[in-house]
Design a protein around this nucleic acid. Structure first.
Lengths: 217, 217
DNA sequence: CTTTAGAATGACCACGTGGTCACCAACGGA
DNA sequence: TCCGTTGGTGACCACGTGGTCATTCTAAAG
């Protein structure tokens, strides 16, 4: 399936491979695809430019490789939390997922930044294909949660599943954005907040998702 | 305050000025700042490259000019709807605002795309300054609405204003994104939906904001 | 110690970029 | 008709890019 350049990259020493992988994510996360510079990358790494092209063939294929790697990380994490929270009530489960998300972007900030860049920079190469991967993953994930909860009678059934998934997806994503991107915080104090504070915000947040903004009677 | 190049641009024939303005928005909206090409722009327009630099001095100043123009358009529209909806109940008012947003991105799709690019492409020139302008505008706007509604007892008062504003901002923005960017639609059918269908979606959407996802008892 | 296969290298290439500036065209006043 | 001023022009420049490939290095085999 994969060609020889892929194999070549997989055969180089492990620490070099990881340094290269990490630095590439950084470069793409910081500058997007087109503004990312192979020259800058190899200078930072102390590796010859030719090597990059021997390993990956082109800037585009390097990017695809890096992105696939990132997706795998996310998938693994999501699978984990899904299994662990299987028995929780829905809104409790939501909180856990949000926490996992926060931990992930904390641990891999540049991967999340890469994802954000990807979405809004329309002329990425392979954009549609890669986005489809991401979207399928998160939609499938949330869809199964939501179906479960509707059948258990935990949430409204006058909305179609897709709509609820869209809503949740939006909210979770936006919360993470507020946590990572100072601009989106908008005075809420979510941005890089300390644990306990963040916990309270998550509670507030999910409570609004659960009960809405209107006053209960 | 402004230098002579600005005045020069304002003195050229009106139709040329508008063609140039429009084409510039297109170019930046499609490619972001760095990937936008002055060569491509002038070729499309049939204007000499030198003229652009006589009018604006640099690519950066051209961009700033274009962006300011876009902001003015948005502001005007927002002012309008605020006054018109002054006496409506809060969640009714939200719907109107959403409608106005939809109409705006319908009428000026490239301005909205420019805004999205701007947000996630971190190395835009003047990014922080321009984002602050945008953010101030929308936050001030929503903040005053929310304060009103809290004092009228229309929405929960156990959340701080900033948090509610953040929530609303996120939701409105995301709805517009789903309407403009196919990817964000995610199976909800919001993307470029026809009027009647959209009306129903807006109702659903605001109803969730109002009452939440949980079942009422 | 010599041979040799294959990985690493970086000078080099063609290209597209933002920006410049010497020149040109047009036009109003004399 | 001539001149002077002013806006318009596009060939040109230095630069940084993604990508190439002849050469050098390395290390295992004979």
């Amino acid at each position: 399936m994969e060609d020889s350049s892929y194999n070549l990259f997989n055969r180089i020493p492990k620490d070099k491979r990881e340094r290269l992988l990490h630095a590439s994510i950084e470069e793409f996360a910081e500058h997007g695809f087109h503004q990312a510079s192979i020259n800058r990358l190899v200078n930072r790494l102390g590796i010859a430019k030719g090597s990059i092209f021997r390993y990956f063939g082109s800037k585009e294929r390097l990017f695809a490789f890096v992105f696939d790697y990132a997706i795998e990380l996310v998938k693994a994490r999501l699978r984990g939390i899904r299994d662990i929270t299987k028995e929780m009530p829905f809104f409790q489960r939501l909180k856990s997922i949000l926490w996992v998300g926060i931990n992930f972007v904390e641990q891999h900030p540049s991967i999340y930044r890469l994802y954000l860049k990807m979405i809004f920079q329309e002329n990425f190469p392979l954009r549609d294909e890669l986005l489809r991967k991401v979207h399928l993953m998160s939609a499938e994930y949330l869809t199964s949660l939501v179906r479960d909860s509707i059948s258990k009678g935990e949430i409204r059934n006058d909305l179609d599943v897709d709509f609820v998934v869209f809503f949740l997806n939006s909210m979770l994503d936006r919360f993470l954005q507020a946590y990572t991107v100072a601009f989106w915080d908008a005075g809420t104090g979510i941005y890089k907040a300390p644990q306990e504070e963040l916990l309270r915000k998550v509670d507030h947040f999910v409570s609004v998702i659960e009960k809405g903004l209107a006053i209960h009677e």
